[in-house]
Simulated scan of single mutants.
Amino acid sequence: MSKLAADLFYFPNLEFFCAILDYDEVVFCRGQEFRRKSFINRTDILGPNKVQRLTVPIQGRRPRIPEGKLLIDYEQKWVMGHLRSIQSAYGKAPFFEHYFPFFEQIFQKEHSHLWDLNLDILTLCLRFLGIPAKIVLVDDPAEIQVEKDIRGHMSTQEPYTTRNYYRATPYFQLFGVDFEPNLGVLDLLFNVGPESKMILSDSVKKH
């Protein structure tokens, strides 16, 4: 059984799903330290004007805090902002009405911890994408025993082209003249629906 260790992102991008696509189990560690400039609380969508980054605000300072203990800051009205941005970007997309209510229900739970929010989102995305990978959770990095470990590989500071997981495979997008690659998974699901897994398979970078 093939196993891979990865970071638990907020609406992961296509690079993430290409990286995990062929593994039976994906391991996530609650006890690993929070990394700045990661996608743990960020995702990108394509709006009417440009690519827009959505960020989940986190409470307090975060030196050396385990990712599983990150608390979401609800004093900032980010939930309504994210929902409005998603609706503005994808309200007219072919599969918006099919998937959006499920994600809206996740937001309505108002998770206290970012980890739990991301886990619910990923579980739903794997189901919609038809990816059978089993999610395995551990508390201590020492517990991780896998064939491949991609934790820390994907950063907001470096383009996906510097890594060997994803190649851009164009699909239908509502906005823009040129195709925008490697957006958050919402862009793929809302625009192409059941064809999403096929697009991901075609987007895996061949070594």
Rank of each mutant, 00 (worst) to 15 (best):
L189C: 05
F190Q: 09
H82C: 12
L129M: 08
I150F: 04
P12C: 12
N191G: 09
A168T: 00
P141T: 09
Q87N: 10
E104G: 09
I121M: 14
A6G: 10
V56G: 05
Y165F: 14
S2I: 01
P141M: 06
F179E: 09
I106R: 06
R53N: 11
R62S: 10
I45L: 12
N191C: 14
V136F: 02
H153S: 09
N164F: 10
K206V: 11
V51L: 08
D24E: 14
F96T: 07
E25D: 06
N191D: 03
I121T: 03
D7H: 00
R36G: 05
E33D: 07
H98P: 02
S88Y: 05
I106A: 06
A19L: 07
A93W: 06
Q32G: 01
L129G: 04
K92R: 15
I121Y: 03
S196Y: 00
I144V: 15
Q105V: 07
D7R: 00
P194R: 14
I86W: 06
G81Y: 04
L174Q: 15
E158Y: 09
M80L: 12
I20T: 02
F103H: 04
L200R: 09
L21K: 07
E195F: 14
F11I: 03
P48M: 14
G91D: 10
E104Q: 15
N41W: 04
G184N: 06
N182I: 00
E104R: 14
L183M: 14
S155A: 08
I150L: 11
W78F: 13
F102G: 02
V26W: 08
M1R: 07
C18V: 04
E97L: 09
I131D: 06
V192M: 01
G68V: 07
V56H: 08
Y23E: 03
P159N: 09
E195Y: 14
D22T: 02
P181D: 02
V136R: 11
D24S: 12
Q76I: 13
I121K: 02
I65E: 14
V177Q: 15
I86N: 05
K109R: 13
G91C: 14
K197D: 02
L54T: 01
E143A: 13
E15R: 01
P94E: 13
Y10T: 01
F179G: 06
A142Y: 07
V27G: 08
D120F: 06
C29M: 12
P159S: 05
R53W: 04
I45H: 05
T55Y: 00
G60H: 12
S88H: 07
E110A: 13
P57K: 06
D120L: 07
V56F: 08
F17D: 08
